[in-house]
Amino acid sequence: MAAGGDHGSPDSYRSPLASRYASPEMCFVFSDRYKFRTWRQLWLWLAEAEQTLGLPITDEQIQEMKSNLENIDFKMAAEEEKRLRHDVMAHVHTFGHCCPKAAGIIHLGATSCYVGDNTDLIILRNALDLLLPKLARVISRLADFAKERASLPTLGFTHFQPAQLTTVGKRCCLWIQDLCMDLQNLKRVRDDLRFRGVKGTTGTQASFLQLFEGDDHKVEQLDKMVTEKAGFKRAFIITGQTYTRKVDIEVLSVLASLGASVHKICTDIRLLANLKEMEEPFEKQQIGSSAMPYKRNPMRSERCCSLARHLMTLVMDPLQTASVQWFERTLDDSANRRICLAEAFLTADTILNTLQNISEGLVVYPKVIERRIRQELPFMATENIIMAMVKAGGSRQDCHEKIRVLSQQAASVVKQEGGDNDLIERIQVDAYFSPIHSQLDHLLDPSSFTGRASQQVQRFLEEEVYPLLKPYESVMKVKAELCL
């Protein structure tokens, strides 16, 4: 049975990233139509530049190519590739079939990587351009969430054990800070992308030097003109047959890092959902379990974690691919890159769409948070109580021993009897502590235990987050809708 299948058929496997999760716009960027249309555009740009620099290419040939950029006979191309065992030459023939007058000058002087690699770089750039505003929107939604809850005390956790208090907004800023680093890295790697350009079979530009009869300047002009037509500021000066596969490492490393950030955020949300302090959106008709109707599973956060793990592992592909590119190139890269580049971007696209949807509907339960604080705060307040007693004339050592005994009794009630923490009640009825009984409410005010959390939130948002989001103001209103 021949390899390949009808990918629109229910009898043929289709990647869930495309069929179930990723956005239509990201799927289109990695589609065959987008790819092969870009090949034709690159052939047109090459012909236009070659004509401008004096090669015998007519206006009629150029116009014929322009008129057929979208006229792609995919069936013919597939048949040609089956016959020739070469995808680029299959599309040269297919393009030439609908451009008979231009057929002889299509791909003039070029090698397969002229269309293959340059198209990949265009796709990487455009895919990054799709991700950047999506990530900015996630940051914006979380920034709104953090600002609104900047002063809401909550129990902090280290080692997932109760620690000092923080605020809900401050905790959210930990998430935002990681995503801001990801946004900066995505922008950097996007701006650092260079075009492969017009380089020939081993990167020496020998074929173009021959076409222009040894004119170095025209060869350099050709490279520059096509690079500018493709919208790049610069091209690699040095290439082998391909652009260095280190570029793929750079791009997928940034995406993998984004995956790590999203995994951490969504894990926190899942843990908070278990504590009943916070939940992701839950639709009115949504079913959490087929057997347990009360369940409210954090399905979206779980999906993000599941896909983020996949995204983090994909960076190993370009690392290994770059390491086995012998001399000017081997074909070890080809099949692998067809999979890992598309999957990385479709996965990143999915987790950003999902995280935006989550961040637009996060639900906080202040009463649950308050109750958990009441359970733990008495123990945390013991040092403040000791200091207040010393100020009232008591002995630190005597007070410490009193607190120690009462704390152990209260802990026994919590752990052995399943009761509430009654340390404060014990202190309130103990005559030894009568000098500070009137101060206990103040000493137990949760806001006095959150330090500068709310001020940190305000400063972080104003100095770091809002300036970073400013270039994306025009796209901030787009909502994230999930079908599944």
Rank of each mutant, 00 (worst) to 15 (best):
A3W: 15
H7S: 14
H7M: 14
G8S: 14
P10T: 14
S12L: 14
P16R: 14
R20S: 00
A22W: 14
M26G: 02
D32H: 15
R33D: 04
Y34N: 02
K35G: 06
R37M: 14
T38W: 04
Q41H: 12
L46D: 01
A49L: 03
E50C: 07
Q51Y: 07
Q51H: 10
L53Y: 05
L53E: 04
L53D: 00
I57P: 04
T58K: 06
T58F: 06
Q61I: 09
K66C: 07
L69R: 01
I72F: 05
M76D: 09
A77G: 06
E79H: 11
E80V: 05
L84G: 07
L84I: 06
D87S: 09
M89V: 07
A90D: 00
A90R: 01
F95P: 00
G96I: 06
K101D: 15
A102D: 03
A103T: 12
I105F: 11
I106H: 01
L108N: 09
G109L: 02
C113Y: 01
Y114T: 06
D120V: 08
L121G: 09
L124I: 10
L124Q: 05
R125G: 09
N126K: 07
P133D: 09
A136V: 15
R137W: 08
A143F: 15
A143Q: 12
E148L: 06
R149T: 10
R149N: 05
A150L: 04
L155W: 03
F157P: 00
H159L: 03
F160S: 11
P162A: 06
L165T: 02
L165E: 01
K170F: 08
R171Y: 00
C172K: 03
L174R: 04
L174V: 14
Q177C: 06
C180A: 14
L183Q: 11
N185G: 04
R188P: 00
V189I: 13
V189K: 14
R190F: 06
D191Q: 15
F195Y: 12
K199W: 00
G200S: 09
G200M: 01
T201I: 01
T204I: 03
F208P: 01
F212W: 14
E213S: 08
H217A: 10
Q221V: 05
A235S: 11
I237K: 08
I238R: 01
T239N: 02
V247P: 03
D248W: 02
A256Q: 03
S257R: 10
G259P: 07
A260W: 00
H263F: 00
K264Y: 05
C266G: 08
A273W: 03
K276P: 01
E279C: 03
E280L: 01
F282S: 14
Q285V: 12
I287D: 00
K295Y: 01
C304W: 02
L307W: 07
A308Q: 04
L311E: 02
M312T: 11
M316E: 04
D317I: 07
A322W: 08
V324R: 01
E328L: 03
R329K: 08
L331G: 04
L331S: 00
A335D: 01
N336D: 07
R337H: 10
R337A: 00
I339H: 12
C340N: 15
F345W: 02
L346C: 02
I351H: 05
L352Q: 01
L355H: 06
I358W: 05
Y365M: 12
V368Y: 10
R372T: 04
I373R: 01
I373W: 00
E376V: 06
F379G: 02
F379W: 09
M380E: 10
T382Y: 05
N384L: 11
I385F: 05
I385A: 00
I385P: 00
M389N: 12
G393Y: 04
Q397F: 02
C399R: 03
H400M: 05
V405L: 10
V405P: 08
S407W: 00
V413D: 04
K415H: 02
G419N: 14
G419I: 07
D420G: 07
N421F: 05
L423N: 07
I424Q: 13
A431V: 07
P435T: 09
P435R: 11
Q439I: 10
L440P: 14
L443T: 14
D445K: 06
S448I: 14
F449S: 06
F449Q: 04
G451F: 04
R452S: 13
A453Q: 03
S454G: 13
Q455G: 15
Q458Y: 15
E462Y: 11
E462G: 12
V465P: 01
Y466M: 15
Y466W: 15
L468V: 14
Y472D: 07
E473N: 15
V475R: 13
V475I: 08
K479M: 12
A480F: 15
E481I: 11
E481Q: 04
C483G: 13
L484F: 14
